[in-house]
């Protein structure tokens, strides 16, 4: 399964961020758009489970926007 921004929004919407997942700018920092650290933790988990990949702690700080995740996940697949 390919990672797309739309798919990532859907995964983010399953966290407590819910509707905000469909409103944030895909290139902007999620933290700066109100997605808190716990929702991001949930997002990492759901991405790992959905795409069957691992996101090590050292990579987490490099990932800020939905676009970052799209590129990162597709490089891992």
């Amino acid at each position: 399964m390919e990672a797309t921004v739309e798919k990532l929004r859907e995964i983010l919407s399953q966290t407590s961020a819910k509707n905000a997942a469909f409103e944030i700018d895909e290139t902007g920092s999620m933290r700066e758009q109100g997605i808190d650290s716990l929702d991001l933790m949930d997002l990492y988990l759901n991405i790992e489970d959905t795409f069957n990949i691992q996101i090590p702690d050292e990579d987490v700080n490099k990932l800020s926007s939905l676009k970052d995740f799209e590129i990162y996940v597709n490089n891992k697949l």
């Binding site: 716990l38 933790m41 949930d42 990492y44 988990l45 489970d49 702690d57 987490v60």
Partner: peptide
């Protein structure tokens, strides 16, 4: 505590 690891453990 590595909060992310503990969260992943509980959630999975």
């Amino acid at each position: 505590m590595n909060g992310r690891s503990i969260f992943n453990f509980a959630a999975r």
